[in-house]
Computed example of a mutant assay.
Amino acid sequence: MADLLFFLDFDDTLHPTWKFRVREDGREVAAPYDGPPLVHAPLLDALLAPYAERIEIVISSWWAYTRQLDTIRDMLPPRLAAQVVDSIWLDELKKYGAPDYRSHFATRYACIDLWLRRRRPNYAGPWLALDDDANSWPQDQRHHLVHAWGTLGQPRVQAELVAALQRELPTVLRRDK
């Protein structure tokens, strides 16, 4: 078992969902992003690299609700793919429709909390979530959230992620024996 669980969202985290441009009249307009998916996955791989052996990734993106986990792994850089252990979308609940993952009660935080209670009930170690949705997080749980507002491509988000990793996983110096 790893030292830290890392819950990973994709949309507006590893790639934008909208692109913005300024029209001739000076007004900004939005259009759906049509670029490559997971464009910031190599950046995430580089940021997590110093801790790679100490982190297990749980996919919290809606993508894992509609795709097999092996398909998701194939879309990620190899080192990140090797760290993926599960998704928050529990198969036993998807099959029977309980709870309704599409309800307003099934917030990202609530689904992560459910996964922790079902898959790691005795886990007391650190965990982080990289997600663009900060609205559903209880105030007393926000220390687990790295808010990727504007995607991981934003220097502010990168700095917040690095600081959270350093806080949760201090560097351990190893001596060669």
Rank of each mutant, 00 (worst) to 15 (best):
A30V: 08
Q139S: 12
P138L: 10
P50S: 03
W127Q: 04
V84P: 00
L69H: 01
I55P: 00
A163E: 13
Y33P: 00
V172W: 14
P78S: 11
A106R: 06
Q83H: 02
G35H: 04
R102L: 14
C111H: 04
V172N: 14
T13P: 02
L128N: 03
D133Q: 06
D34H: 04
L128G: 03
A30T: 08
W149R: 14
Q141I: 11
P138F: 07
Q166R: 14
T71R: 06
Q158E: 08
R175I: 10
Y123M: 02
A81H: 00
Y109Q: 02
E28P: 09
P42A: 13
A30W: 11
V85Q: 12
H104V: 14
A98V: 12
D132Y: 05
D3W: 07
A164R: 13
R102W: 13
A110H: 04
V162Q: 08
A46D: 15
Y96E: 07
W62S: 12
F10A: 02
L8Q: 15
P32V: 02
A2W: 08
K94W: 11
R156C: 09
R117I: 05
Y101G: 12
M1S: 07
N135W: 13
P50A: 06
Y33S: 00
D132H: 04
M1A: 12
Q139E: 12
W89M: 04
V162H: 01
M1K: 04
P99T: 10
A129I: 06
Q141W: 08
V84Y: 00
P16G: 05
V84H: 00
Q158V: 06
R142T: 14
A124N: 04
L114S: 03
D9R: 04
C111F: 03
Q166A: 12
T13R: 03
E160T: 09
A2K: 15
R73C: 00
L43R: 13
R54M: 01
A124V: 07
L116D: 01
S136C: 13
L14V: 11
L47K: 02
A134D: 07
R174D: 10
R79A: 13
P42H: 13
A46F: 08
D176L: 15
R108M: 03
D25P: 03
F7I: 10
T17W: 00
Y101P: 04
L173A: 10
S136R: 00
Y123I: 02
R67I: 05
D12F: 10
M75A: 15
